[in-house]
Computed example of a mutant assay.
Amino acid sequence: MKKEECTEMILSAMSEKGLTFGEMAEKVGRHEVWVATALFGQASMSKEEAETVGSVLGLDADCVKLLQECPYKGSLSTVVPTDPLIYRLYEIMAIYGMPLKAIVHEKFGDGIMSAIDFEVDVRKMEDPKGDRVIIELNGKFLPYKKW
């Protein structure tokens, strides 16, 4: 079984059972964004976490095992995404990426934001002009080493 097939099984089972990523996160005991990341094959779960998911969703042993494997991270297609929400995030980085990089360098120096020591949160803010999506990226600053 390939990870993509396992992901399809997971999403199908969640849909059939009417479960959200937030509900899955409660069952696993982790943050909903991290759980969603793992269920999409971009993070590895512990044996206990994977077995919990398998039990809740009725997954076979191969899929439970795949949830525990170290993933090939960032394995999305290199083609510009066509899904509107993912495209907008891509567009945001195309427009604001260089300005954000410049501001990070002004405030912290020459370095990067870790994607390892990292957290993401998604919140909804109600607004009379239309609800707002708030995505918070929180990563440790890692300065480049000189040698």
Rank of each mutant, 00 (worst) to 15 (best):
D83P: 00
C63G: 02
L19S: 04
E126A: 11
V56K: 04
A13H: 04
V33D: 11
T20P: 03
D117A: 15
E32F: 15
S55N: 07
T78D: 13
L57T: 06
H31G: 09
V133A: 14
S44T: 00
L100D: 05
K101G: 07
T78V: 08
V104G: 01
L39N: 11
E126F: 10
F21I: 09
D62T: 03
I95K: 15
Y96V: 00
L89M: 14
P128R: 13
T20A: 03
I92F: 14
A13F: 07
S44R: 07
V133F: 13
S114P: 03
K17A: 12
D62V: 00
Y87N: 14
G41Y: 06
E136P: 00
G54P: 03
I86L: 14
P128V: 06
S77M: 03
G139W: 05
H105K: 12
E48K: 12
V79C: 04
E49A: 13
A36W: 03
P99I: 02
K140P: 00
S75F: 04
C63Y: 02
I116E: 13
L59Y: 06
I134H: 07
M24G: 06
Y96C: 06
K17T: 05
S15C: 01
D110T: 03
G22Y: 01
L76I: 02
Y72S: 09
D110I: 04
V56N: 01
P99S: 04
I103F: 04
G109F: 02
L11D: 03
E49R: 01
P84S: 07
T52E: 08
E106P: 00
A36N: 05
R88A: 14
M14P: 02
G139R: 04
D121N: 12
E136G: 03
E136N: 07
Y96H: 10
M45H: 05
K27E: 07
V133S: 08
E32D: 05
D110P: 01
L89Q: 11
T82N: 07
